[in-house]
Simulated assay, not measured.
Amino acid sequence: MIRRTTPRQKAGWVLFILYLCLLAYFMFFSESFGRTEADREYAYNLVLFKEISRYFRHYDVLGFSLFMINIVGNIAAFIPFGFFLPIISRRSRLWYNTVMFGFIWSLTLETLQLIFKVGSFDVDDMFLNTLGAAAGFYIHGAAHYIRILIRYRRWKQ
Rank of each mutant, 00 (worst) to 15 (best):
L66H: 07
Y138H: 13
R91Y: 07
F56G: 09
K117A: 06
K156P: 00
R35F: 07
G63W: 12
G102K: 01
I88A: 10
F84H: 03
T5R: 11
G132Q: 05
T111D: 12
F49N: 03
F64C: 10
V14W: 06
F29S: 08
E41D: 15
I69V: 13
Y59W: 08
L22Y: 10
L107R: 04
F16I: 00
Y138L: 15
I146Y: 10
R147S: 15
W13D: 03
H140S: 05
E51F: 03
T98K: 01
I2A: 06
V47R: 01
Y96M: 00
G136V: 06
G141D: 05
F101W: 15
I139S: 00
V118Q: 14
L114H: 06
K50C: 00
A143Y: 08
I139R: 00
D39H: 15
T108N: 13
A76H: 08
G73D: 01
S30L: 11
I150W: 14
A38G: 07
Y44K: 08
I2P: 04
V72H: 01
S53H: 09
I150T: 15
Y59V: 01
D124Q: 04
I2V: 13
I52V: 10
F116W: 14
S65P: 03
H140N: 10
L22Q: 04
R154A: 12
R93M: 06
A134K: 01
R8Y: 06
G73K: 04
R151P: 08
M1S: 13
L46K: 05
A24D: 12
K117N: 06
L23C: 04
F26G: 06
M1D: 12
L85D: 05
L23T: 12
L107H: 01
H140Q: 10
G132L: 07
F137V: 03
K156S: 06
N129V: 02
G82C: 09
L107E: 09
I75C: 02
T6H: 03
I139T: 10
W13I: 07
F116H: 11
F26D: 03
G82S: 09
F137Y: 14
G12M: 02
G63K: 14
V14F: 15
R35E: 00
A11F: 06
V118D: 05
S120A: 15
W155Y: 12
Y138D: 13
M27W: 05
D39C: 13
T36D: 14
Y42M: 12
G63F: 11
V123R: 07
V47W: 07
I104R: 05
W95Q: 06
G63T: 12
W13S: 07
Y96I: 08
W95R: 08
N129W: 04
L48C: 00
F116Y: 15
T111L: 15
I146A: 14
R147Q: 10
M100F: 15
E37M: 09
S92C: 15
P80D: 02
R57E: 04
L112H: 10
R93G: 00
Y44L: 14
K50G: 00
L107M: 13
I115N: 03
Y59C: 09
G63L: 08
R35N: 08
F49S: 13
W155G: 11
S65A: 14
Y145A: 11
R151G: 07
E37D: 07
D39Y: 15
L22A: 15
N70I: 01
F121Q: 08
S65T: 11
S65K: 09
I115F: 02
